[in-house]
Each structure stands twice: as structure tokens, then as C-alpha cells.
Computed example of a mutant assay.
Amino acid sequence: MKKVVTFGEIMLRLATPGYQRFIQSTNLNATFGGGEANVAVSLANYGIPAQFITRLPQNDIGDWAISELRKYNVDTQAILRGGERVGIYFLETGAVARPSKVVYDRAHSSIATIQPGSINWDEVFEGAQWFHWTGITPAISQEAADVCLEAIQAANRLGITVSCDLNYRKNLWKYGKTASEVMPALVEGCDVILGNEEDAEKVFGIKPEGFDVTQTKGHVDSAAFESVCVQLKKRFPRTKKVIITLRGSINANHNTWGGCLHSDRLYESRRYDITHIVDRVGGGDSFMGGLIYGLISYPQDDQKALDFAIAASCLKHTVYGDFNLVSVKEVEGLMGGDGSGRVSR
């Protein structure tokens, strides 16, 4: 089977235990995570060869990050070594009416100073069928954006499917350019676009009428986003499929979760009621990993691909850490209606 390649930053994640606040915590749990790395781990768990490309410092923390990826059978052989440091993010998990908080410490990370021309993308893409990136990578630095564009252009030239998760993060765009200035040139090369209720509006000014993300009260109408999908496909003619994840936030521990996919028509997923969230960080990445698996495994069945992605990401909300450590069998079990949580003996 041909491989999937992802490109982006992997960070050290330092999280307060349980629901403790930063100010009261005396220790932090250390794991790793990052949008494109999270997708690679999901795909490797599903049996799809996955290769992650990044740049990490030549030190013990860089070695640690690579070791974590290898633990989950992600191909790390083309990771560049160099630069000053591994980026860090600090996480305080919210509860009920108190939202989670993320504090970034990733300035001058190794990938932020990556140089155009430093990766031979033709070599990396040998034996590849798919390339995935997110809007987080071009937000890190101009250099990271330039290298991401190199990858997209190479993938287009080689006939490789390209997907992106728009993943708008306002706190990352700090180097003098906005997402609206940088992202269009990259998204033009994408065959599959994923976003949430806000991404298309924040990056491209495209939004559904009469929708306020802060006032969902647990329900988001997928039909309202058909116009968003159509507008995105019109703006980016190469794009064949646009997918929107739909999160209804009742409180920090209780969300509804669903999605819609527009290709030849609008497909809608079932809606999950997630009442006791363990960890929602990486939820969108777990959806993307499930979607890529579904589109590769069920190429003529967009509904099944969407259903697999939603079920996979629903399960991710029960798993601590950024990585979605579930199997195809577990996802298919939930797709088939087994959400009882009974002990498997």
C-alpha cells in the first residue's frame, strides 16, 4: 500500500494533571503532539503506512520526540535535524463552565527556521499517494510556509492527493503576515479541505448566514454549512471535497459532535453526544486521520468515509493525549452502533 506523508511541527505537551489549574499544579504530564503528527499516528494505527516530516534539534528532546513517533510505527527516517529547540505547549484542561487553556512556547523552534530547498520532496514522495498539511504550519514562520508550499507544488506535479485542515490559530500568526494573505496560495493546491465552524470565516471570510459559533447550545445544523462548502469549492476549483466538523459545545465536558462532506452532494454524519470528555485536544486531527483512511479505503463511498471519521474522532475524546490510539475494529464497532462501553472479554 502506498504511504501518506504529513508535514508540520511536533511539540512537547506539558499538561496539568486532571483538571488542575496552572497556578495550583506542582507537576506537569509530558507527552507529544501536533496536528500533522497526530494524523500520522492515527493512520499508522489503522495500518496505512505513514511518514512524518519535520525538523527537530539534534539533542535528547528531539530524540525523545522521534522515539514517541516510532513507538506508533510512524516513519521518521526523513526528519531533518537542526535548529535550536522543540516547541512546547502548556495545557490546562477545563471543566464544565471553565474552558481549557493552551499557552504556546514555540518561538524559534527548529521548524520555524527551516529553509526552503532543505527537503527533497521528490524523494520524500516516492511511493506516496497522499500529502497532508494544516494551517498551523504556515502560521509558524514565513520559512515554514515556503517549505509547505514547495511540498504542495511537488505533490501536485506528481499527481499525489493533497489535503489540508485549515486550523486557524490567531495566536500563531505573529511574523507580520495574516492567514488571509498566506493561505490562499497553499489551499489552491488542495484536493480535500477540512475546516470547523469558524475556519473558513476567519481565513477567507466565508460563513453561513445567521450562525454564531458561541451560541450553539449543543446543536449545529449541518445544512447551514452547505453554502460554505460550495463557496470554498468555487474559490478553489481544484478542490473535490470540502468537509466541515460540527461541534456543539454545551460545556467543557459535554459536546455534540458531527460533520458534513460536500462532493457531488452534501453528506451528513450521525450526531454523537459526548457527555464525559477525557481530552478533546487532537479531536480535529483524529477526524482528519479517520477521513484520510476512509477516503482511501472506501473510495466510492463518501458517506462511509465520513462516518468512519466522525466515529474515530468521537472515540478520541475518550483518550488522553494528542494521539488517537484506537483501532479500525473499535471505530467500526462504534459505527455499527456499539457505544455501550461494556467490558470486552
Rank of each mutant, 00 (worst) to 15 (best):
Y72C: 13
Q215F: 08
A50C: 12
T275P: 10
W133G: 06
G290Q: 06
K316H: 10
Q20A: 15
Q58V: 11
I119K: 01
G289D: 06
D191R: 02
L266Y: 01
G8S: 03
E181S: 11
G82I: 02
L80S: 06
L14V: 04
D302W: 01
R265Y: 11
S163M: 00
G336D: 05
H254G: 00
K101F: 13
D285C: 08
E9P: 04
S297R: 13
E201M: 14
G135F: 03
G283V: 13
V39H: 07
F131K: 02
V242P: 01
F211R: 08
T275M: 14
G35E: 13
Q58T: 11
P49G: 10
N255R: 07
T76L: 00
I160T: 02
L266V: 01
D221A: 05
R238L: 13
G282W: 04
T54Q: 02
N167V: 07
V228E: 08
K217Q: 14
A144P: 03
V41M: 05
A312K: 12
A40K: 03
E198R: 12
P237D: 06
Q51L: 14
T318H: 06
P208Y: 04
E123C: 10
T161N: 11
T214L: 14
Y298T: 06
A155Q: 05
S269F: 09
L149R: 11
H108K: 15
L91D: 07
V281M: 11
E9W: 02
L295W: 04
L56H: 02
G341H: 09
I10C: 08
K233S: 07
G283S: 11
Y298F: 14
L261Y: 10
N253L: 15
V102S: 00
V331E: 05
G333V: 07
G336V: 02
H254I: 08
C164P: 06
W173R: 03
V281K: 08
I250W: 06
Y89C: 04
P299Q: 08
N27A: 14
V331K: 00
G336Y: 05
T16D: 10
S141K: 02
G248N: 01
G248Y: 09
G83T: 03
E268F: 12
L306D: 02
A37P: 05
R345A: 13
R342P: 09
G210S: 08
V220T: 04
G83L: 08
G341C: 08
K174L: 15
A309E: 03
A15C: 09
V326H: 14
I136Q: 00
Q129K: 12
S109F: 02
K3M: 06
V103I: 15
F225P: 04
Q231N: 12
V187C: 01
D322F: 06
A128M: 07
T178L: 10
G339S: 15
D264W: 08
M335F: 10
G294D: 02
L325K: 11
T93F: 12
G18N: 05
E209N: 13
I23Y: 13
L14Y: 06
L158A: 12
V230W: 03
F225E: 04
V230T: 12
Q303S: 10
P138Y: 05
V228A: 07
